[in-house]
Simulated scan of single mutants.
Amino acid sequence: MTRTLVVTNDFPPRQGGIQTFVAALLDRRPPDSLVVLASRSPGWERYDAALPYRVVRQRTPVLLPTPATARAAVRLAAEHRCDTAFFGAAAPLGLLAPGLRAAGVWHLVGATHGHETGWVALPGARQVMRRIAGGLDVLTYISDYTRSRLEPALGGRTRLAQLSPGVDVDRFTPAADCVPVRRRHGLGEGPVVVCVSRLVPRKGQDVLVAGWPRVLDRHPGARLLLVGGGPDEARLRRSVAAAGLGSSVVFAGPVAPAHLPAYYAAGDVFAMPCRTRRGGLDVEGLGMVYLEAAACGLPVVAGTSGGAPEAVRDGETGTVVGDPRSPEAVSAAVTALLDDPARARAMGAAGRAWVEQRWSWTTIADTFAGLLEP
């Protein structure tokens, strides 16, 4: 049996998309085939105690490719006779790969997400990514968009293979009980547009708010439910107050992963009009929230940033807004779905079927196993 050393800074209980991705991949591997080297975050002792595999935490909140981390990785690989290694995020921890190979780990895989597309756009960081790729047998990518950015910069230094995040279709389901969420946040009986994401400019909550009066013109009882926290919250709240939208825009704050399906299910439409910023350095790698929403039976409204359009079948499971910076365009896409509930429900059903077929963790886990056991 292949035994794998997992080296990752991104690991629960710290929350985030990469953390969720890595943990879900490991949940579907034989427990005795894994040992994890990770950083510490609040609550790690309790979290690790419930896991079926061993986790070793370095005494640091951020795991970097330092000599101490390199020694710990080599020691664990030898102790557990690991023949493969997986880097939860290849940049920068993939720099440890040559040392592990020299210590007898013969097959090394590193994952990329979205931020690496920014790395390869900058000369110094690009050289680091080329070094990382040269030390790995496989470098994974999450979308065709991220591959298109990575491949030219890496110059054939390693094999590229797709490993996208997946959706737990047993948790994210139209049957999720949304009644407590609707009651807690006073959403009433009108239509709800939900956005689940960090509150940062790239995600487009500001455009949703700017276009919201146009939605209310046609659907006065509608509510906009913003789920998540982030540095843009204060600015968004000021915009809501200045426009007099306080009664129709609800800030739910951060929500624990276990409760997210109910928040999706509380909506009639999901909207996150993400946009690319900073000359392409701030970009959406894929957009798992679109797939989670689709799994819950919602039609989605997406932006054009990076790989986001790959998480939507435009016109079938939702709408990709060509100009996600335009409040008029975004509000028109949202309103069109609220105007035609039958079409919205059909899109939601199509999205659910697509996620079950293409994006379920069962499918992704089989892909991951094939990458670790070539």
Rank of each mutant, 00 (worst) to 15 (best):
L5I: 07
L96V: 12
G186L: 00
C274E: 09
R126C: 14
P152M: 07
S39K: 06
T140H: 06
R202I: 14
V56L: 01
A346G: 09
P261H: 04
S33R: 15
L337H: 08
Q19K: 00
T317F: 07
E284S: 13
P220S: 06
A369T: 15
T60H: 05
A336C: 05
V128I: 15
T276A: 15
L26G: 09
A121L: 13
V105G: 08
A153C: 09
Q127C: 13
V194T: 11
P165W: 02
E151M: 05
G124I: 15
R214C: 01
L100V: 12
V56C: 05
P13S: 01
T117R: 05
R223S: 03
L187R: 02
H259G: 00
F368I: 06
S41A: 15
H113F: 07
P31C: 09
A111H: 07
V209P: 09
D32T: 11
V194D: 03
V169M: 06
P31Q: 11
A266F: 00
T60L: 12
L372Y: 02
R147V: 01
G370N: 00
V22N: 15
D206C: 06
L64A: 15
W359R: 14
E284R: 06
R75S: 01
L199V: 04
P30T: 09
P257D: 10
G190M: 02
L260T: 14
A24K: 03
L337I: 06
V74Q: 01
G155S: 13
Y290G: 09
D177Q: 02
T317S: 11
V289S: 14
S41W: 11
E189V: 06
R101T: 13
L76Y: 04
V330P: 00
A342S: 14
D27N: 12
R29K: 07
D170R: 15
M272P: 00
G322H: 04
T304F: 01
T317Y: 08
V7I: 15
P13L: 00
I142E: 08
V120E: 05
